[in-house]
């Protein structure tokens, strides 16, 4: 069984963060979350990290692996070589609580403000015929609120008031199917210097999203909607 080297960022707010090497024996079929849990269980119980479902449903175990935003539960160890340390750091652009743990409550508050809820009406599968005139089914409720997109977005680094890719994608989704929601309030929320217009199209949100939400495209569609709404107002239609 190979021995994997993990270089974890350790520390607490107010102290000096440092990178520490840990070695764990695990089969190549294991995942990064298994390695971090084993370190916690066998070597250091003070290690702070988040985890829950172990199958990319809860979005709790987001970290940066060799600089890139990933969910530990779907990052297989076989992607790496046992000869080189796998560097694991907390997500960027969130308040740091210690080790690999960040406070995701700012993102959750923004999502709550939008009123975003994960609702799956019907799971259409490949073996069921598509309705006439429909070429493909797109699921829209895929966001697992993991925060990887916020960590990857360079604009988040420069503007702490920026709503962020997840929230803007949620607004766009809610506008598509408001279910009685207040669309005018959502449009006002998005039509703000810290809203849809702050995005600089770095596209990193879409690149790191583990659920194919594609926030970058959603923000583009949201902007088109906002432009249409503004045009409508100019010609006297109101919102």
């Amino acid at each position: 069984m190979p021995t994997w080297q993990l270089r974890l960022l350790r520390g607490r707010p107010g102290g000096s963060p440092r990178l520490e090497i840990y070695r764990v024996e695990l089969p190549a079929e294991a995942y990064l979350i298994d390695a971090v849990e084993k370190i916690w269980a066998e070597q250091d119980r003070s290690l702070l990290f988040r985890h829950a479902c172990h199958h990319a449903s809860c979005g709790a175990c987001g970290v940066r692996v060799n600089g890139r935003e990933r969910l530990m539960c779907i990052t297989p160890l076989r992607e790496f070589s046992p000869d080189r340390p796998i560097q694991v750091e907390p997500l960027r652009h969130f308040p740091w609580l210690g080790d690999l743990l960040v406070d995701v409550s700012p993102m959750m508050r923004r999502m709550a403000e939008v009123g975003f809820a994960i609702v799956r009406q019907d799971e259409l599968t490949a073996d069921r015929p598509l309705p006439e005139g429909i070429e493909r089914i797109t699921r829209f409720e895929d966001c697992i609120e993991c925060g990887l997109c916020l960590s990857a977005c360079p604009v988040m680094a420069a503007d702490e008031a920026y709503l962020g890719p997840a929230t803007l994608a949620a607004i766009e989704r809610m506008l598509k199917e408001p279910r009685g929601g207040d669309t005018a309030r959502l449009l006002t929320l998005a039509d703000d210097p810290h809203g849809a217009w702050r995005c600089h199209s770095a596209m990193e949100c879409t690149a790191v999203c583990p659920s194919n939400v594609d926030p970058a495209s959603a923000i583009g569609r949201l902007r088109r909607r906002l432009i249409a709404e503004r045009f409508r107002r100019w010609i006297g239609g109101g919102r």
């Binding site: 940066r64 600089g67 935003e69 960027r92 360079p154 680094a157 199209s201 990193e204």
Partner: peptide, 18 residues
Amino acid sequence: RASGWVDLRGRREGGLAF
């Protein structure tokens, strides 16, 4: 935080373009 936008670690073409 403001200097974070120059941090290219883990970034791809979009981040480099930005």
